[in-house]
Amino acid sequence: MANFNLKINGKTQQLEVDPTTPILWVLRDHLKLVGTKYGCGISQCGACTIHLGDNAVRSCQLPVSSVGNQEITTIEGLSEHGDHPVQQAWLEEDVYQCGYCQAGQIMNASAFLKKNPNPTDEEIEGAMNGNICRCGTYIRIKKAIKTAANSKTV
């Protein structure tokens, strides 16, 4: 057990936890931020994607001890009112089916668009390939990413 001060969604959270615990379980079990999902635990599905600083990372493989001072953003903190351009685009395209993968998809897409505001289809596929959607909403996800890119406010 060790003490950590984590910066999550703009707030500092203090907790005592096994230092090997991945951020995914710190969020879900210890902080009750369950928007970040568990799908595989081995960096294969992307359901657990969060932002570490400006980068999209897999929280299932990110030990709490490795985070240090870096700012963590989860789906709950992506925008104050659920109106981040990527979230709005998702609503606009009515993307989801079961919805389970979508927090991870949105977190990955929003980090990607920040770095590449005008992506080609191939760049989108490359960036998003690590995020599985078992329901097969891929075409809508891609469309929503383009809608968000065109909204110019990313």
Partner: peptide
């Protein structure tokens, strides 16, 4: 979808 907003904001909807 009537639950769209809840899905894109990560509300606790699922069994897990």
């Amino acid at each position: 979808n009537v639950d769209g907003k809840k899905i894109v904001t990560g509300e606790p909807l699922f069994g897990l």
